[in-house]
Design a protein around this nucleic acid. Structure first.
Lengths: 235, 235
DNA sequence: AATAAAAAATCGAGCGTTCGCTCTATATTG
DNA sequence: CAATATAGAGCGAACGCTCGATTTTTTATT
């Protein structure tokens, strides 16, 4: 599986994505016309990502947002009840969408190896990069319960990682020096790295599939050389 | 070297730290009495960390800050010219302090191996955890030039990592499958992980030296088992 | 197919509040 | 008693948000 084939199967169009978004929070919007709502929601959310990336969500004013998304203040408030709900919408929908996609992928193919789980997450974070970036950087606005809900996709990911690592350890493909839980915890920031520092790898000319390959090598054998490993075995 | 011995040599007392802070920006403060200034600066900066961690720097009002630090609005403004300068002070001083300490450590001992560099950074980020956390999460307030200055310590760290990895590759201790630059880029988020998710490892009962050991094993050999490596060599 | 009535969607000036910040009066210090 | 440090009410600006007026879209009727 490479990024291109993943896209063909799982990449939603903008319209599809925000149609799902609309239905997920349907009763919260005063706008009943789906066609209009989906279109406006897309511009609002994308404007939110743009402004938040530049100046953070807290520093973004709703006047700026209304200007950037081409709506008036009143028009904006047909889609949100208040500012912090906008942040909540993004967190909640992303968590829902990630969980859904991960379950889809792991059910469809026999996705019970480390490479598949890791690629799925990195590919997904590429498709929804602004969402992932926002969710990581703007979690301060949430209450305790809201955080708990938004973190579910993260916990699912971690449990999937632990599962396949433990499996590999039982089959003696993987070392048991480090606990599976520890390896999973150290793997996660390698996944976040891709959507947090995307400009860095773009600048460096590293493609997403090259990055995935590097991460896989890094996790599965690190810096170990044939030479150094014989020493390790002796100790 | 373990954390305790690092602390004995490099941990500054609160007073020492903020005395350095005071002198670094001396001409920017209207308060001339060092004893008073150092004490007040400590409470202001620590209050900033506390409030920013809860609600982000942007959502922190200066009225909250003055209350939390026990000063009036006027008193507060004897130490800062404006709100965003407070954020800038923290970024600039941390960068200065990190560069200074890394240079100290790498000069004192022959610190030319990966373990020493990595431990130095993790230990330092433990000593100054709120500073590192703040610098990571609150970089949006800075202008382009200010970012460029604040990022210097990061670039120094990366270049040190690349240096020792290349060295290990030349000595054939380390594999050359991944470029040293790539390994360094993947190593950095493992260092950030410690100060970004510190509660997670505290909850799990993992000490800082256990974490360092895990990171070293992860980087130097990943999940490779004796069994799997013979396969790798054949391919 | 044209048109009128009803419903839905949008507008934007205006409300009360809070913000960053200032400045003079007061308290503290050497 | 100077010089220094702090207090906190007050300023204009910008904030989140509301709500009656207006425009756009849908529905009903000819």
């Amino acid at each position: 599986m490479d990024y291109q084939s993943f896209c063909q199967q799982y990449q939603p169009s903008k319209k599809e994505l925000f149609t799902q978004f609309y239905h997920f929070f349907k009763d919260k919007f005063s706008v009943k016309n789906e066609r209009i709502a989906v279109e406006k929601l897309a511009t609002i959310i994308e404007a939110t990502f743009k402004l938040s990336a530049n100046q953070s969500f807290a520093n973004m004013s709703l006047r700026q947002l209304s200007k950037e998304s081409g709506l008036s203040m009143g028009g904006l408030y047909a889609y949100i009840q208040n500012k912090q709900q906008l942040s909540l919408f993004i967190h909640e929908f992303l968590s829902y969408f990630v969980i859904k996609t991960i379950n889809q992928v792991t059910n469809n193919k026999g996705c019970n190896n480390l490479e598949c789980i890791i690629k799925t997450h990195i590919y997904l974070s590429e498709l929804l990069q602004p969402w992932f970036f926002f969710a990581f950087m703007e979690s301060k606005n949430l209450s305790r319960d809201e955080i708990k809900a938004a973190i579910q996709s993260d916990l699912l990911m971690e449990s999937k990682l632990i599962e396949v690592i433990k499996c590999g350890q039982q089959e003696e493909i993987y070392s048991t020096i480090l606990k599976a839980e520890t390896v999973a915890s150290l793997t996660k920031p390698l996944l976040s790295e891709w959507y947090l520092k995307r400009w860095k790898y773009k600048k460096r000319g590293m493609s997403i599939d090259q990055y995935c390959l590097a991460v896989m090598i890094f996790i599965e054998r690190g810096l170990s050389s044939p030479h150094s490993l014989t020493e390790l075995e002796q100790s």
